[in-house]
């Protein structure tokens, strides 16, 4: 554990709490992509298969995994049931098969061992890299977003961004490199570039999140 990974994980936790706070206080999931949230459930379920296989990393690791699975399922429940009427499926139209199929094929090709758990792990890494697309697509379509929704996306982007110095640190301190995670992670972080540009120049200056026409 190093400070980059710890703060990265904390940003990830924060993103979930921001999202829950947004939905609970506004009693609405307007502007939130059910598809992105469903993809995160798929990511956690396929990546954390080791929870059920007895691979023990640490108490922290297990606790966080259980939290990510539980909270992501709860968010799906909120969108699908509790605040169902505030969800607009006509805005959330990104075709998830364009993300699922290529991620699965990449998982079959690039993995550390051709076993179910390792292929699923790789699949989850590739899928997580692109799972934000339906959410960014809603942002693109509506051209604007509530500040709190942008804080949620920013926290996710910070989490991914901090994993990069974490890998650099681990390379020097442990000599370890995880090429699959690193390549997918760099791509994933890159996807937030445009978003962060608008976030820093507008939202953090107190203006509305509005995409240039």
């Amino acid at each position: 554990m190093n400070i980059f990974r710890l703060f990265g994980d904390l940003a990830h936790l924060a993103s979930i709490f921001i999202l829950l706070h947004k939905v609970q206080t506004s009693r609405s999931c307007r502007g939130i992509s059910f598809k992105t949230q469903a993809l995160y459930v798929a990511v956690f379920m396929t990546r954390y298969l080791d929870l059920f296989l007895g691979t023990w990393v640490s108490f922290y690791n297990t606790l966080m995994k259980l939290f990510f699975i539980g909270s992501s399922c709860y968010i799906l429940y909120l969108i699908r049931f509790q605040f169902r009427t505030t969800y607009d499926p006509n805005l959330d139209t990104f075709r998830v098969e364009y993300l699922l199929v290529p991620s699965f094929i990449l998982g079959l090709i690039f993995n550390y061992e051709f076993t179910l758990t390792e292929v699923m792990w790789s699949f989850s890494i590739f899928l997580e890299a692109v799972a934000i697309f339906p959410q960014l697509f809603i942002l693109q379509r509506t051209g604007e977003a509530e500040a709190i929704t942008t804080h949620y996306i920013a926290a996710l982007g910070i989490y991914r961004g901090l994993y990069i110095p974490n890998w650099i640190y681990r390379y020097y301190s442990e000599g370890s490199v995880d090429p699959i995670a690193v390549v997918a992670g760099i791509v994933q972080t890159g996807l937030y570039a445009d978003f962060f540009y608008v976030y820093f120049t507008k939202v953090l200056q107190g203006q509305r999140f509005e995409l240039p026409a």
Binding site: V57, K65, E113, W121, Y163, S176, D178, A181
Partner: peptide
């Protein structure tokens, strides 16, 4: 056989 890295990150 190639060593599978321990997936200790989240």
């Amino acid at each position: 056989k190639e060593q599978v890295p321990l997936h200790d990150e989240l």
